[in-house]
Amino acid sequence: MEVNVATANGRAVLHLRGRFDFNSSRDFRDAIDIALGQPDTSGVQVDLGGVEYLDSSALGMLLMLRDRCKGANKTVSLSNCRGAVKQVLDIANFSRLFQIE
């Protein structure tokens, strides 16, 4: 998976592309560290528009991000969820845990 971090409107945006699975954990954690290390941001947005597949370990990583954002007093949201990715998030009831844009 490819992860790019950008800052826009006071938010760190993680743009993900490819398969979001266990093999992506190191790249995702590194991106989280960069995003949360930016003092001028009030939240983190995960753009899943380029993700073609995610598994249970990806769900766990998103939950870890949620916990870290809560600890840093930052908001977290998911965006551009569609297709199989949206189905997995719906089955896992992530709309109850995350703001989904």
Rank of each mutant, 00 (worst) to 15 (best):
A31E: 07
A58R: 07
M61N: 09
L48V: 02
L62E: 01
L36R: 04
L59W: 00
D33S: 12
D67T: 15
I34V: 15
A35Y: 10
S56E: 05
L48W: 07
D55E: 04
A72T: 04
G71S: 15
D47P: 01
V51G: 07
D47V: 01
L63W: 08
M61Q: 12
D33A: 13
V46W: 09
L62V: 01
L48N: 00
I34K: 14
C69T: 12
T41A: 00
R68C: 03
D30S: 11
V51H: 04
G60Y: 06
L54S: 00
D67Y: 10
V51Q: 04
M64K: 04
R66K: 12
L54G: 03
V46H: 01
G50W: 13
S42Q: 14
E52T: 15
S56K: 03
V46N: 02
Q45C: 15
R66G: 01
D33R: 15
L63I: 12
V44W: 07
V44P: 05
L59V: 10
R66F: 12
L63V: 12
S56H: 07
R68F: 02
D30A: 12
D30K: 14
K70F: 10
S57R: 04
Q38A: 12
V44G: 07
L36E: 06
K70Y: 12
L59S: 08
G60W: 03
V51M: 05
Y53E: 05
L59D: 08
Y53W: 15
I34G: 03
Q38F: 00
S57G: 01
G43P: 08
Q38S: 13
D30H: 11
D33H: 13
D67V: 15
V44A: 06
G49F: 09
G71A: 15
G60D: 08
D67Q: 13
L59F: 01
Q45W: 02
A72Q: 08
R68V: 04
S57N: 12
Q45V: 12
L63M: 14
Y53R: 02
G43A: 06
G50F: 06
I34H: 12
Q38I: 15
G43N: 06
P39N: 08
G49A: 07
G71K: 14
K70H: 14
R68A: 10
